[in-house]
Nucleic acid binder design. Sequence first.
DNA 1: AGCTCCCGCCAGCGG
DNA 2: CCGCTGGCGGGAGCT
Length: 974
Amino acid sequence: MSSALSESQHLRQKAQTTISNHKGNVFAEPQALAKSPRKASNQNTVTEIQSNMGPLTTPTKGTGGTGEPWTPTSNLKMLISAASPEIRNREKELCVDEGGNAVDSSQDCELGEEVEKQISRKEKSLGLLCHKFLARYPDYPNLALNNDISLDDVATELNVERRRIYDIMNVLESLHMVSRLAKNRYTWHGRANLPQTLAKLRQVGEEHRYGQQMQLIRQRSLEKEFDSDSEEKENEDEAEGGKHGQKEMFFVELPGVEFKADSSKEAPFSLMTALHTLCVLSTSLHEVVTRNVFQFTASVNSRKDKSLRVMSQKFVMLFLVSTPRLVSLDVAARILIGEDQVGDQDKSKFKTKVRRLYDIANVLRSLKLIEKVHVTEERGRKPAFEWTGPEDFPDVKDTAGTTTITKRSLESRASVENCAKNLFSSPGSKRSFTRHPSLIKLAKSIQDDRRKINSAPTSPVKVDSSSSEFFPTKMAQLAAICKIQLDQQSKRVIDRTPEPCVTDAMTKAMSVNTELEQQKPAKTPEAPQPAVLTPTEPPASTIHLTPQAPFTTQPMSFHPSQCSPLIPVLLPQHQGSGSYTIYMHPSSFKPHSLARPQPTSLAVRSMTFEEKTGRSPSDVPGHSPAANQLLTGSPLGLKRMCSERSSEGSPSKAKRIDPNTRDTSPKLCEILQARLKARRRGLLSNRPSSRALHLEPEFVNTPGSSAAAVNQTLEQSLETFLEKEEKVATWDGEAGLTPVRAIPLTPQPLHTETLIPTCYLIPISQQSLFSYKDSHSTESSKASVSTYNLYHTPTAGSGSPPVQDYTPTSIHRPTSASPFPTQGHRFNSPSPAILNFTLQNLGLIPGPGSGPANSPGIAQTPEPPCSIHSPLPPHLGLQQRGGMVFIKPMSPVPVQNQMIGQGGQPLTLVSLQQMTTPKGTALPQHSFFHTPVSLSPLASVVPTTPTGPGHTLPAGAKPVYIPQRKLEVTTQDT
DNA sequence: AGCTCCCGCCAGCGG
DNA sequence: CCGCTGGCGGGAGCT
């Protein structure tokens, strides 16, 4: 408390000076001034200048800011504020207003110079500055008024350096509270878009399995603590991943508020699709050439990628995804860095990241979305932040249509756009652009584009708009419906407590926790953990396998019933958006499909399968099943990759490709083949880089979980593309089937790659595509998954089955084959027949079915060790009880250990208002994770798994020992 | 001593 | 070359 108080005091003081002014003005927006040149206010005198500013401006603190306010009352206020952050904030503002009065003598004493110094410092805090800024604008903009914001004006008025304003604007922009109109100019949206934005961010966060990542990191940290052993790090995989880790950059846009306007949007979706495809291809090519995905990524990342905007969104996502809405600074930093393990080199990176997080946190605090708290662990206190913002926003459902679609990574989009631009002078034209030759060039151009894009913001005005909305049509609706249904289902599932796979468990846990938590403060963050610990849980592990899990996890997953209806729609619609949805077939699908009504809608089924397949775990987490699937697959993939995948995959793929592809477009085929080769090479060499598709390197980078995973994903994605293309070419449904089967034969390990193929592309709205890309990109390893998700999303959920099982299935995909969009047009509409076809294939594809069986081993495996084991945990997580929460620091560790650990350290009870979250917990499926975080466990696992695709729980097998910790959450105040 | 995080250098980029 | 952006990290202020 004290600390908080002190802070608050400071703030107040500061605030007083500044704030008061603003409020009065609030709305007014100065904007008018176009930029006022004055930028700089001077730092020196904080005070005065502002007053000049403009009309709007408030005189902010009067200059002298100084003065002020330290009144006795302030103390009271402080106390109060300490009590509740919000109050504080308000008070601060108020104080400011009030503030005019006297300042405390004590401080005053300092007088001039000193006073200024201190005051200045405080006053200059980003949080206070943000408060001032916010005071100028209404929460909800008055449309009638001009909502333009001139940076120069603001800077002048607030008397701060422009640089500081950028920080604020970047964060606000990440929340879509403002959008850039042009250089130096922004438009104020206030909180109007906040709910949607948060919903999207949550969705995206789920897709990326940040929750899982967080758990992994926590676990690791625990492990490390206990055993230094843990050091092992996952290293290698991660190493890459880690490096790239950051990469996941992507910027989630809202329909109405887009980062940039694109001409591309205007283009027919077909074009978009084509472009997208091209981009992908080019990317892949590029990657191949380079091999260095990372580098590639790096290029991509350049600036904006790293942008505070992206960090901000990710940071917010962490809150939205974590059960206890509590995020510790270090965990957040690790996730943002992409690797949980911080090497020496990384330390500096880590520090930098932390600095940035403070910057972001200060702004978010001023928005009252989070509050600083302290989490007490055995070791000591760690700074953390608790979400104090809205808990419920429109579900994705609502947004789904839009939201889902809208999400994109800037880069991806940019890349697409760029590609388009580069390739086609005229956007509209074509689908037919040449791919091959150009692709190569494209790769380069793409990079350039990306850069441009990155820089773009600066550029001219955006039109934003809801351009994205164009697809609103049926597709969107359907998607929304699907999502809703899924969500419902998922909820149900969750409720059931199936805690399937680790991942699922995680996800579920999250969801569950959330629910619970919402009800009660105490959460068992650990839920999963407990499970682990608890015997009861055991089943959980199994759960992974269980189909249910999948469902539950994500809303995305579809139940057949629900889906089916939707499916039809989807197909037809694709036209509008042009983008296609990709469906994965998880092997599992097939089985499921069989079980279920295949016929109806392929998509649905696929979705279903996924769910069923479950790979549940993987799927579960991300709400988008597809993504999950990918993730899940990833683990497998990793394994596979590790093992041989490269070699194997290639051949098989090649084979596949040849037949189909050739037909279609030789060029494409060639290209694809080339890619494949490249991949193979890459794979062979290291982890294959993510060559392929990843448009967005960032994602690739994803921390890491395992580089391998990432690679896999990439590969998969590439493969997918290729496959798609092939499919397109061939397109015979039947043919597809055949091949598929053959493929399935392929050994498990390879699958990963194979898996890729499995995916089906279905035309969907463009947005979906974008999102897809983005998603991929975002999560490197995960990417694949995410990708799927994206696609699915639009559709309605398609769930993509996890790769794992499916591998074989993948083969099938041809059948489904929806051609890639690009080519796509051809396919524009996937005819029902096609769908059926696909479905059939799926059904046909047995492999997957078995998959489930395998699945256990498969997907889950990797992480499974922990996660798998942990499935239970979710339950545990629930453990809360009345006010008390048991937090177990549990680590994901294997049950046994955990048990021990628990025993060793029993749960600590924390009675907090806040809930503590458990940290650790098992993370489930690393596989999914791919994620950035490196999963040490995973890493180890991965290798193992490869061997047996089938799995086992590779990791699972390994018990991880994690020490449990006690966590206490305290508000910082205290 | 560690946590926060302000400050401003300086690079990338577009004009 | 210039101005806008914004990454980045030194180091100061606070606890």
